[in-house]
Design a protein around this nucleic acid. Sequence first.
RNA 1: GCGGCCGUAGUCUAGUCUGGUUACGACCCAGCCCUCCCAAGGCUGAAGCCCGGGUUCAAAUCCCGGCGGCCGCACCA
Length: 537
Amino acid sequence: MSFEELMKMAKRRGFFWPSFETYGGLAGFYDYGPLGRALKKKIEDLWRSCFIREGAIEIETPTINPEEVFHASGHLREFKDLMVRCSACGESLKADQIEDATCPVCGGSLEKEGEKFNLMFKTQIGAREGGREGYMRPETAQGIFINFPNLYRINREKLPMTVIQLGKGYRNEISPRQGMIRLREFTMAEAEIFLDPEDEDYHEIEEKMELKLLRRGGDAVEVKLKSSPEMAGGMMMAHHLQLAQKFLTELGIPESVIRFREHEEEELAHYASCCWDCEVYTEKYGWVEVAGIADRGTYDLEAHIKESGVDFTALRKFGEVRKVKRRAVLANTELIARDFQAVNGIKKALGEMDADLLKSVKDRGGKVKIEVDGKGFEIGPRYFDVLDIEDEASTERFVPKVVEPSYGIDRILLMVLAHSYSKEGDRWVLKLPPKIAPVTLAIFPLIKRDGLDTEGKRVYEEMSAKLSSLGLICKYDESGSIGKRYARADEVGTPYCVTIDHQTLEDGTVTVRDRDSTTQTRVKEENLCDRILERSW
RNA sequence: GCGGCCGUAGUCUAGUCUGGUUACGACCCAGCCCUCCCAAGGCUGAAGCCCGGGUUCAAAUCCCGGCGGCCGCACCA
C-alpha cells in the first residue's frame, strides 16, 4: 500500500480530493466526498462519545472572533514577528533579533523588505467604518475559555469540568505540503479540562494499558502509567494519554504505530508548560502528530482576566472552616486628613497597592508616591499600617488550571485509511472497523434476472429504511458480475454484503458475506438487521 | 517565500526533443447482452492537452508570463 495509491482511491471512490480544482487548485484545502464525509462524521461521533461518556459537555462557538480574544490569548503578539531573509546564505531571521542590516550568521546583506508571518486569517467584521477587526480562529479552545463563567455555572459549579468543541480551525500556512497533513482549514476536536490544581487525582489510570513514551531528549520506552503518572505530567495528563490511545485503537490504528512524544522546551507553544504529542507512524510521512495533550496551566484564564477584567475564578470549598492568613493595608485616616485632605483618594490608592510591597516600604521607612486627581502625594510610613490578619473561611476563589487534549480529525482520518487499506492478492480491502465504515451494508442480486433483482430491490428498500434511521448507509448494486460488486464493496470498506440468490425465493434466507474473511453465512431475512447491527452500531 | 522538476479524460499513460489526418492505449464509470458467488467475456457510450499571450499557414508540441502540484531549504505559534 502506498500513499499515492491511497490518495487515488480516495479521489476515485469519493473520500476526498483537493479543493478548487475547477479554478486551478489551491494548496491546503480539501473537499470531502460522500464516503469521506460519512467516515469523518463517524470518527467525530466516536471521539465525542469518548468524552461524553466521562461527563464532558459540548458547546459550539463562532469561527470568527474579534481581535480582543487573540490579543488576550497571545496569538496576535506571537504572529507579529517580522521575518527577514539573508540574500547571501538564505537564513531566515526574526527582525527583532537584528541590530544592523547584516546577517549575524554569515555577515551578508539582508533583504530590505521583511515578511509578516501572521498565521491567522484576518477579516473585517461589519461596515468598514466603525467595523471591528476579526480573525479566523486558529484553535477552538478560546471559544471555551472565554465562556468559562457561563460554563462553570451551567456545570453547577463543579470541577473538574470537561468542555469539548468540534469545529473548523484556520491557519494561513506559509506553504502547506503533504496533502492532507497540513491544511489551512481543518477540523479540530478539542477538550478543555478545568481542574483544581490542588486536587488532581480524579481519574483511575488503567493498569493494564501500556503506552510508548518518548521523553525529552530520550529514547522511547514502554510504560504503564499506573505506577508513575508523573512521567506524563500528572494524573489528568496520564489519563488523557491513555484515552488518546484507546480512541485511536478503536478506530483500527494498531498500538504498534502509536507513540507519545514530549515537546522539547523550545518547541512548546507560548501557553503550554508541558505537552505530549500523540503520533502515528506511516512509511510515507514517518511519525505524524495527530493529537496534542497540553498542560496550559492557568495561562488562558489569567490572560482573559487581565484583558477583560471579568472574574474567571472557581470556588474551592474546604469542607471545614479554615484560618486564612491575609495581609491588609490599613490607612491612618486621621493623620492623612490632617496632612493631605484627600483622604478617600489616598485610602483607595493604598488599598489597591500590593500589600507585600507596602510592607517592605514601611519596614525600610520609605515613602510611597501616590497620584490623586492629578495631584501627587508622598506618603510616609506613619500614614499606614500593614497588618497580618487571620480570617476564618470555608471557601476561597482560585483560577482553575487547564489540561487540553486537542485532536486533528483530518489527519486521524488519513491515518485510519492508511492503516486499514490493504491488498489481498488482487483485491484492495479497506478493513475499517464496521462501526466507522461509511457504507455499512451492500445488497446484490446474484444475477439480474429470475426475479432476483426485484427481490433484491425490495430487501434493499427495507434495510435502507431501517439503517438510515440510525445514520447508517446501505447500497444496492446489480451492475457487472457478483465478483466485481464484492470487489467494489471491499475497496470502500463495506463490512457486509448481502446476496439474494435462488434459495432466497424458496425459503426467505439470504447470504451475508464478511469483508475480511470473505466467508458467507446464511441468515433468515427477518434476522438480517440485528445481525448487521451487532458490530456496526 | 527561494531553488529544482513537472502539468494530456475520474486514474495511469503514448505523443512534446524533430510543430502537420479525427490526440494512442488501459483502468474506472454508464447502458445493453451474458453470468447460480468473489474485478470472466461481448457490444455501445461518456469523458482530456492547466490558463493567458506570442511565434507560425498551422501549437499538446517552440517562446514568455501566470496559476497549480511534487521534492529540497525555510516555516509549522
